[in-house]
Structure formats: C-alpha cells, structure tokens
Design a protein around this nucleic acid. Structure first.
Lengths: 177, 177
DNA sequence: TCGGTCGGTTCGATGACTGAACCTGGGTCC
DNA sequence: GGACCCAGGTTCAGTCATCGAACCGACCGA
C-alpha cells in the first residue's frame, strides 16, 4: 500500500496482490476501467479523486502491468489507460467484492445488473450464467442500470454509464464532453 | 476507508464493500481469521500491525458484522474474534485475490496449497475441486505449506501455521505461547 | 492574440499510520 | 503481602499519505 512499510514479511499471495491493488482508490480505478473508462479526465470526473492521487495510481498500475498507457492521438498528444491481460485477470476479484457488497452490506437497492450478453441472462453471485453454465468473461458481460442507481448523476461519465452497455467498450468521447 | 471523505457518491456495491474491507490491514486480518487466528495477541504477532491500528480494525469489523467478539474465558476476562456468516462470505474475495497474486505477481514459489479436505485434491484457481466439481466451502479446505514459505518464521503464529491444517480451526493456544 | 482543454505537478493543511511508552485488570510465584 | 508477568488495550509525538485548490505547459480554434 505504498506506505513506508509494506507487507514485506507477509508470506502470502493475498498480501502480494494487496501490495498492488490494495491502496485507496486503486480497485475503483480498475472497476472503472472495466466499465470502459480510459482517459485521465474521465476517471477524474467519475471518481472525484484528487488529481495527484489519480496520477500516482495510474502510474503505479502501469508499472505493475495492470494498465497499459497508449497514445491514441498525436496532436495534441493524448494517452489512454487500457487494461492488460493482468488487469483483466482481476475481474474475479471485482466480481467477488461486488457480490459481497450486494449481499452483505445492508439496506440498498441493486445498483447495476450484469447479464450474459450471449443469452441475456443475469449472472449468479459466482459470476456464472445460470443458463449457459459457464463463467462469463467480462468482455461478454452486459451491464444494465438497477433501481438503486442515481438516475441523474452530476458528472458526465456517470451519465454515460447509465445506458446499458457491454463491459470494456470504451466510453464515447462525445458523451463525456 | 475511514478517511475524512468516504466513497459516498460512488453508486456501486464494490465501493460499499471497500468501505468495510478496503482499509490497510483489514483483509489481512480477515485472512488470518480464516487461517484460525482469533486472539488479539496472535493477530499482533503474525501481522506486525501497530496495536492501535489492530484495535481499531477489529472494532470496525465487529461493528460491520464481519467478526463476532466473544468471551471465551471469564477469569481473567478474555475475548476472541470469530468470523460471522458475513465474514465467511468474504472467502471468494480472498480466494480471488490470492489466485490473482499467485498467477500474476511474478517471481515466486507458491506459498501455500489449498486442498479439498474430503478428497485431498488441490483446488483450481476458481476455488473448485477438480475431482468433485464443486465450489469448496472454506470449512472444507485443508491448507498445506508450499515451497515458497519461510520454513522458520520468527513469530510463533507463523510457526503454528506451518503445519497442514484445516481452515477455520482455532490455533492451539499452547503453540503460540 | 485570446481563451479553452487536457494532463498533469506543486503546495499547504489535514488526517491516518507508525512505533514506543504507558495503563489496567487479573493472574502467579514466593 | 509484594513483585512480577501477561493480555488487551490507550495515549502520544512524529512521519507520511491524502485532500483540495492553485498553477503550469502544450496544444487548439477563433
């Protein structure tokens, strides 16, 4: 967690994972990357994280091989941050956290629903399509808004994420201007 | 994460889960609880966390309903912290994090192996027994030391956790004295 | 030339974490 | 009774991360 002292003497793969994704905001950044957010200004608008923290986290995730920073336009130079294979492998972690939050944090309507894009069925708490009986890859997940979601969020990214959309498809730049 | 500002405007069950288990040390506490650690002094010895932080995290987890604090001896009064149902439901989160750490954090031997106690088979990365083809409950998991584990840890709790053992069985108090 | 956008960096203030010391209630030993 | 130890904290000063706001430089369009 990038404090002066790390989890050094922890002989444990969980601790090693938390060294990379355990800091404040980091997993929410990765979640937004799955939702299709790729640009610095969009992360900033959607998360409300201080700019300095956002820049540090993005750099740390790039260094750890979770995100890839790539140039998508030359003039003016603009980069976007895209999940690598290692980042995509975090999907089970996010799914497990989300399932736990939905099931165990009391008092709320579901925020979002996740469906198997191939057949339209809502995924079960283990991330499996009950009809096709397979664990669904995030690229095959369609996200739909739930009853608990604020229908008119203040930030443009939140508004763009109100529409049903497939995970990992980039946000439309026009929608977040 | 118990900072001045929380993830309040995040309309997301992942953010709500991270509000509870996203702080530094918290998930390692829960991991140790699955390993069988229950007493304040054992958490302290095994994690090396500052005492004030440990007390605050344990209290927060009790308040969140993840741990249950219960008296196990009256004289002198001693309490232990045991996972509740809500805490046990965090198993998929820890498993997913550990699987990611094993697979994606480079350069290390496996620290521990997890086997289905009923049949002895090692679990696959999804936490499923390949022979019985069922997701294995943590109470049915046997943990065995791996090649990457320090064979002579400094703290007595680490030594007690070297032996093969079933998850959730309490540590022998005599072994950690 | 003027203003605006994007992607940062810098800065002071605030708050969390750290390590060490201290405290309390209850043993045990002699 | 007195000395000492232990488990489970609390308190405290110092350090470090985070926060919010301001600033900056490259580029664009009018």
């Amino acid at each position: 967690m990038a404090l002066g002292k790390d989890y050094a003497q922890q002989q444990c793969s969980i601790a090693r994972a938390l060294e990379i994704v355990g800091e404040r905001w980091t997993l929410l950044l990765v979640r937004d990357a799955f939702y299709g957010v790729r640009r610095y200004s969009d992360f900033l608008a959607h998360l409300g994280v201080p700019r300095a923290v956002l820049a540090a986290r993005l750099q740390a995730l790039v260094d750890a091989g979770v995100l890839d920073r790539r140039r998508y336009q030359e003039s003016p130079p603009r980069d976007e941050y895209v999940l690598t294979g290692r980042g995509l492998a975090l999907w089970p972690v996010l799914w497990a956290l989300g399932a736990w939050g939905r099931a165990e944090v009391p008092g709320s309507l579901p925020m979002r629903h996740f469906h198997h894009a191939d057949c339209g069925t809502e995924l079960d708490p283990r991330g499996i399509c009950p009809v096709c009986r397979v664990p669904v890859d995030p690229a095959d997940v369609e996200m739909r808004p739930g009853a608990g979601l604020d229908p008119d969020p203040a930030d443009p990214v939140g508004r763009a994420l109100l529409a049903p959309r497939r995970l990992l498809t980039p946000l439309d730049p026009a929608a977040t201007s």
